[in-house]
Design a protein around this nucleic acid. Structure first.
Lengths: 110, 110
DNA sequence: GCAACTATACAACAATAATTGAACTATTGA
DNA sequence: TCAATAGTTCAATTATTGTTGTATAGTTGC
């Protein structure tokens, strides 16, 4: 997880609709949902849903698999776990001494 | 932490500049930085920096304290910790059985 | 008081993101 | 083959966000 990917993921989650989609798919776990089920659940017009699903898939937060004429989406749990780890490290929880030592030499991953 | 606040925080972090500001302030810990120091460090014009500082402060990710003619900004670590907790809970890490049981009755906090 | 300094507020503009309907591709089932 | 279904792509529009210069408010030191 680097800053670039983290920013892309934050952008993905920075929309109420996309956060709803992600949380819905977290709930359904490995089963996931096909696009039409998501649209029905969240009452979204298909083009708009497609727009947000594309953003989430491009950020790798969702995976998509074709099932006949359907597209099945699933939440990418490991990536979210990576993001949580990144945020934890960035915020130095568990290593507060690094947070509060201004003289430490932080790594640059810009 | 509810969905609304989480979305606002994600929006706050969904900008390379704002993520840079936050990470910079995490590094300086309780000391924080005054606006001019942030501007110098990130080479941002003051009006643009003000714009992003305002967004970060409104999302509560930063605190601000007046020091004479200066404004000192600090990262709000506890809020970030709350967000990490929220994400962990949402993603059911530590409780994977809830993630993968489609019949569980999830709470609604929309 | 007043000049210098720090930072924000405002207004204009630029750039990006979100939404929608129509058209299109692919798949299914008859 | 063909009509129906699922979903995306495209183009146009709207809405939102980001950037910049200028003006302003507050603070300091002389």
């Amino acid at each position: 997880m680097d800053k670039k990917l983290a920013t892309i993921i934050f952008e993905s989650l920075a929309s109420g609709i996309r956060l709803d989609i992600f949380r819905l798919l977290v709930k359904t776990g490995t089963q996931g949902l096909v696009a039409g089920e998501i649209a029905a659940s969240l009452q979204l017009p298909p083009t708009n849903l497609s727009f947000h699903l594309k953003a989430l898939t491009q950020s790798q937060l969702l995976t998509v698999e074709q099932e006949g004429r359907y597209q099945r989406y699933r939440a990418n749990m490991p990536l979210m776990q990576d993001l949580i780890l990144y945020m934890t490290q960035e915020c130095c929880f568990g290593h507060p001494e690094q947070c509060f030592d201004i003289n430490s030499t932080p790594q640059s991953d810009n």
